[in-house]
Amino acid sequence: MFTVSRRSVPAAMVAGLLSIALAACGGGTTKDSASSAAPAAPASSAPAKADPNAPIKEGLKIAFLPKQINNPYETIVDKAGIEAAAEFKAEAKEVGPSDASASSQVSYINTLTQQGHDAILIAANDANAVCGPLQQARAKGTKIVSYDSDASKECRDLFINQANSEEIGRSQVKLLSELIGGKGEVAILSATANATNQNTWIEFMKDELGKPEYKDMKLVKVAYGDDDDQKSFQETQGLLQAYPDLKGIISPTTVGISAAARYISGSKYKGEVVLTGLGTPNQMRQFVKDKTVEKFALWNPKDLGYLASYAAAALASGQITGAEGEVLKAGKLGERTIGKDGEIILGPPFTFDASNIDQFDF
């Protein structure tokens, strides 16, 4: 369902997209990929030295904790991570809240810790709100991998970043500037006000807009749709009504960009206000084809989940500790070197438009 189709994609594009490839969930809901192997022994909380030649333990218990359980983007990420876990014979599931509030993930972290999971993978709604519970989990030997939206670095072992944060933020401004001719009022439609990834990207967007080449572009508002489809739809309407001279909107969230596109496509603003941001091809295809959206960007969310899953397994098996310079063996994605502060970057974003969007299916 989420496979990237190669169809007529040029070889260079396929290689580039799949190596990078180209910015979340109801209570008690789970998606399992269980193994019949015996459960692994709980990980030790004592400091350990990496053994890159250690095999991945069979029967590891890992759990994905997205921003919210019904976010389409994070469903793709987590499903791919669960499928990856089957490759190394682990038990994997997805659990999470139905809203993306700051503290909504805390009870899930506590439950997963009590259940003795070897690793928790979290897209943090609030970097600080989840820190205490994650520290308690680590004290009991659970490895913590953040993905998509980072937790505070002292509260996790690794962060799997979909792309360089600075590159995401600056590239979004450059793309919008290209589309509106470098002139006019612009707005940002974000997810939640406390989302680590969104706030980091927005800071780089603001910094980019401060450069001389963008002197004719003015940021008038940062609005928050809370990664809720209806609220994002309403916030789009509010922006367009409040700022009649608005020329462009950046929505660096898959929920926000699709909701904004849905509103604009049926309004008088279609063809007048430019929308870009981060979305999946399947979400945005109809809006590209009806010319509501010309260009948008993303990485491959399947690869993000896959990479995060292998990172969790490598940590729990002692292959890596999360130290800078260590090398993660990530299955079909190859080797990735751990950078500063325990960060691994998937790769740069990819731009989708009418010329290539039918070549992808995720």
Rank of each mutant, 00 (worst) to 15 (best):
V4A: 11
S5G: 13
R7E: 11
S8L: 15
V9Q: 08
M13D: 15
A15D: 01
L17C: 09
L17F: 15
L22K: 12
A23M: 05
T29K: 09
T30E: 15
S36M: 13
S36K: 11
P39M: 09
A40I: 12
P47E: 14
K49Y: 03
D51P: 00
D51H: 02
D51M: 01
N53Q: 13
E58Y: 12
L60H: 11
A63L: 02
P66G: 01
K67D: 13
I69C: 03
E74V: 08
D78K: 00
I82G: 01
A84C: 08
A86P: 02
A86E: 00
A90I: 04
A90P: 05
A100C: 09
S103W: 00
V106R: 02
Y108T: 05
Y108E: 00
I109C: 01
T113L: 01
Q115L: 09
H117M: 00
H117S: 01
L121T: 02
I122H: 05
D126M: 13
N128M: 14
P133Q: 03
P133E: 00
L134A: 03
Q135P: 08
R138M: 14
A139L: 10
I144Q: 00
V145K: 14
D148V: 13
S152R: 14
Q162C: 07
A163F: 06
G169E: 09
L175D: 00
S177K: 14
E178W: 12
L179S: 11
G182I: 04
I188T: 10
S190K: 06
A193I: 14
N194G: 13
N197C: 04
N197L: 04
Q198W: 07
I202R: 03
I202S: 08
D207V: 08
K211P: 10
V220C: 02
K221A: 05
G225A: 11
G225I: 06
D226T: 13
Q230N: 15
G238D: 14
L239M: 02
L239R: 01
Q241I: 08
D245T: 12
D245Q: 14
L246P: 04
S251W: 06
I257C: 01
A260V: 01
A261H: 03
R262K: 15
R262D: 15
I264A: 04
S265K: 04
Y269S: 06
Y269I: 05
K270T: 01
G271E: 05
G277R: 10
P281Q: 09
N282P: 11
M284L: 05
Q286E: 12
D290K: 09
D290I: 01
D290Y: 04
E294S: 13
E294K: 13
K295R: 13
N300F: 11
L304D: 11
G305D: 10
G305M: 10
Y306I: 04
A312Q: 10
A312K: 05
A313H: 07
A313W: 07
Q319L: 02
E326R: 08
V327G: 07
V327S: 06
G331R: 00
K332W: 03
E335W: 07
K340P: 07
F352K: 00
D353F: 12
S355A: 13
N356K: 10
I357M: 05
I357T: 09
